[in-house]
Design a protein around this nucleic acid. Sequence first.
RNA 1: GUGGUUGUAGCUCAGCUGGUUAGAGCACCAGAUUGUGAUUCUGGGGGUCGUGGGUUCGAGCCCCAUCAUCCACCCCA
Length: 456
Amino acid sequence: MSKPGIPQGTRDFTAETLRKRNFILNTIRREFELYGFQPLETPAMENLETLMGKYGEEGDKLIFKILNNGLNDPKNTDKAKEGFEKLMDGKNSPLLTERALKYDLTIPFARFVAMNHGQLTFPYKRYQIQPVWRADRPQKGRYREFTQCDADVVGSKSLLNEIELANIYHAVFSRLGIDGYQLKINNRKILSALAEHCGGADKLTDITIAIDKLDKIGIDKVKEELKVKGLSDDQINSIEKYLCISGNNEQKLSAIKDLLGGFTQAIEGIDELNHILQNSQKVHLSVDFTLARGLNYYTGTIFEVKAPEEVKIGSIGGGGRYDDLTGLFGVSGIPGVGISFGVDRIYDVMEEMQLFPVDLQTGSTALFFNMGDKESLFAFNVMQQLREAGISCEIYHEHAKMDKQFKYAEKKKIKYAVIIGSKEMEESICLVKNLSTGTQQSIPVSQLQTVIFDQV
RNA sequence: GUGGUUGUAGCUCAGCUGGUUAGAGCACCAGAUUGUGAUUCUGGGGGUCGUGGGUUCGAGCCCCAUCAUCCACCCCA
């Protein structure tokens, strides 16, 4: 028997971690509910064809695929071998795998909407908090199993949705105390116009991928990459002009108008940005034309949230508008917009910046000491009354030295020690010791409940 | 998928150019202390040095493989 372990990039969560995670999740959930979003959950696995081709070439490689059962059945071996041959050619085959773990929450959501559009009331606002899986190699801020928190509105083109979503971002990060975050916004229509301007509408993806890297690799490397992708010097120069746009939001918008004002797409994108900015003054959005985002189903507004610079974790959330996501599943005409929070990275940011409230880690309210067989049974009955009143408490499992029982309480961050020994039992009193202050008082058992309630 | 880092007790780590029986701190257990958390003192349990090969008279240390880990790239939350 080898040592037990868990798969690469996955984690067990202990109480301390879960309390912190739940703090984040509850904050996000509360905000989603406040804006009228309703919960939804979809299965851990989807049919492989539902997911394939939706995340680009790189994305497809990172989908965890599930091997079919029964491949060793003699009547299936020929098919299994055929499937394996295809696999070796880099193709997926339903003969070998037809299910996969979900890669994000958006595509399964689109699948759900396409399946149920007849029953849903539009605009349909849903939020979803579930794990997703990616066959990436783990590193800082990257896991193979991680949790996403998405909110999407489908069946509405209104920019009011974008404004609401921006406000949710702002509210959540403010509540969590992550003040140094940056909420970036751009519009895919502007990027499309740029691609058109550079004579290569078909090069849109290459262009977006290259300029997305600007802050990481610098302008020269971006130009190099564009050249490799087959763009002419003239086209690259236009892109350079585009990338050099700077200043505050207004300055940037007027500069982009000068550059791409001749394209109707660009005008639309600029107007949309303007409208969103003017109506979400409290949210400090910053326009960033280099923001592209990899997922190629976005068509309008795109959002990305960057963690504060000092933690070097990068993106902790993102989203955008898509015109026709359900069209991928044969149901057209349902536009939508959504955002996502990366809980695991938000956790890492908060841990590194020490933003978790200290009082998150509390155990039971009271520990009843075990002072012997008779005493502990007496204490047990007293304790049950507290439990019935909704006060969480526990009793030490065996008669042991007080030193040990104190240490147990300390480790489990229990607030009060309740001591009932033979003397106390006779007089029907108990000793209540506040473990953080060290003060102790003797009170009748009948008053225990009110005393603890008053002090909690 | 590509490149690198690290792997020694429950945890954090030390272990010299290969040399007797692999160490420390913390944690744990027992006692000093038969009803009060600290501190102190005394004693104690714990390790097939990630795994498998190889070189050597001799390997925790050198070589190869493998697994795990963390980091960077690709891509992304």
